[in-house]
Amino acid sequence: MTAPGPHDGVLTAASPQGVWAWVAVRLAPAAALDAHRGYADVPEEQRRTQAAGQELAWLEALLASGPGIRFELRLRNDPSARLLRGALLGQARGADHDAAVRAALALRDRLTAAPRHVRAEPVSDTDEVRDWLAPFTPHPDGLAELRKPLAHAPCARRDTGRTDSFAVSPLRWAAHSREPFWAELGRLPYPAVAGVCLEPYTVPQDVRHAFRALADEYARLAAPGPVRPTWNVAAPPDVFAGQALPLLQDAVRRYAGRAYRSRVSLACAEALPPGLAEQFAAAAGGAVVCRPPAREWAAAWANTAGLNRNRLPLTYAQGAPAHALNPVEWLLTDLLDASEAAAAFRLPYEVPGHHPLFAAPGRVPGPRPAEPGPAPARQPVPPGGDPGAPRFDG
């Protein structure tokens, strides 16, 4: 039997922009309390808070990973065992094949050094990596994207070229239990995946200047405007701009250095069950659920299947006029600081004595779920087959 080679478990694909490479790290909760090394002598609430704090520190460290990489926490249900399986998926880019492989392996090493309440094992089988990326074709009504809340209103002032004003709310980090959502995801009788994709991003100086300029613009709109000669009175403040101003000032502080570009996705092989995406959104720091329209379905699934982060304008606009969002405002809709990233990105964790939620070595699968009723009629996959199925070199 041949020993695994150093590049085993690395999928690659060439493109005009260079070579892309994908890797995976298998995840499971630590086997027992003693595996937490220091969490065993504290109450459960404090232990969960400590674990969440470790994840936040880990994500802060990964911000320094540099450009050209992405990684995703992906949870996948096993309908036969009624358990979840977890993995960290990584994507790296290089000028050529060898550079991409080196970057992907270095990323895999960093992902394997996960916090101590999980067990992380590199995947050396490329078929398993491929299966983690695109395990099934989702139902046309089986996709949802989770986004930071985006509010909008027509701009009431005429002394500006702005037609609409926007307010982007941050995600809220808290050490709340994810058990309710994980349990619901694990009970589904058909395949499903939930993923949180992060891309380290160093906010350039010109973008920081643009954030400050945007905050200054809203501060001007939130104050009385210039005097109108006809009536000799000042234009009244724009109420919505006043409400959005604190969020923009907070964004100037949050995104002054390193941050993450993000994508949070949920996909099911059948239509999404009522409430599941909303439960995920609530657990992810107060995100909102956005359902991709038919014209963006293929791009949404391609993002998940290829670990990509291409913009979905109609989906991400949340009902706002997408054409009115300028590039800086679009950036704010998917930019997360480390605490916001930690709000959405929660590694597998189990409470001792509670019903197991995750597959782990040596764990006996639970009973098969009851046979479901007739499945909803499958709508055809959009023309051209599965547009999200990635094409890899090996």
Rank of each mutant, 00 (worst) to 15 (best):
T2L: 14
A3E: 15
G5R: 14
L11K: 03
T12Y: 07
A14F: 06
V19F: 08
W22A: 06
A24R: 02
A32K: 02
D34K: 04
R37M: 08
Y39V: 06
E44N: 07
E45T: 13
R47G: 11
G53Y: 00
W58V: 05
P67M: 03
P67R: 12
I69R: 14
F71A: 04
L73T: 04
R76K: 08
R76C: 03
R82V: 12
R85C: 07
A87E: 03
Q91S: 06
A92K: 01
R93L: 15
R102A: 14
A103Y: 00
A113D: 07
A113K: 01
A114E: 03
H117I: 08
V118F: 07
R119G: 06
D125Q: 15
R130L: 08
R130K: 12
R130D: 13
R130H: 13
D131S: 15
L133M: 11
L133H: 02
F136S: 05
H139M: 00
P140R: 00
A144Q: 05
K148E: 01
K148Q: 12
K148L: 12
L150M: 03
A153C: 04
R158L: 12
F166T: 09
S169H: 10
L171I: 07
W173T: 02
W173D: 09
A175S: 13
H176F: 00
R178G: 05
E179N: 03
P180T: 05
A183F: 00
P189E: 08
A194M: 13
L198I: 08
P200C: 10
Q205K: 13
A210N: 11
F211C: 07
A215G: 05
A215R: 10
E217C: 07
R220D: 13
A223P: 11
P224W: 06
G225L: 13
V227Y: 04
P229D: 12
T230E: 15
V233M: 12
V233A: 12
A235W: 06
P237N: 07
F240H: 13
Q243I: 07
P246D: 09
L247N: 09
L247T: 08
L248P: 11
Q249V: 09
D250S: 15
A251W: 10
A251C: 08
Y255T: 07
A256I: 02
A256N: 11
G257D: 15
Y260Q: 10
S262M: 07
V264Q: 03
S265Y: 04
A267Y: 06
C268K: 00
L272F: 11
L272V: 10
L276T: 04
A281P: 00
A283K: 01
C290M: 05
R295G: 00
E296K: 07
A299L: 12
A300L: 02
W301Q: 04
W301C: 01
N303W: 05
L312W: 02
T315R: 05
Y316M: 12
A320Q: 09
A320F: 09
A324I: 01
L332Y: 04
D334V: 13
L336R: 02
A338T: 09
S339F: 00
F345Y: 15
F345H: 10
R346S: 08
E350N: 06
P365T: 11
A370F: 01
P372I: 14
P374V: 12
Q379F: 01
V381F: 01
P382V: 00
G385A: 05
D386P: 03
P387N: 10
P387Q: 15
G388S: 04
A389F: 02
P390F: 01
F392P: 01
D393L: 15
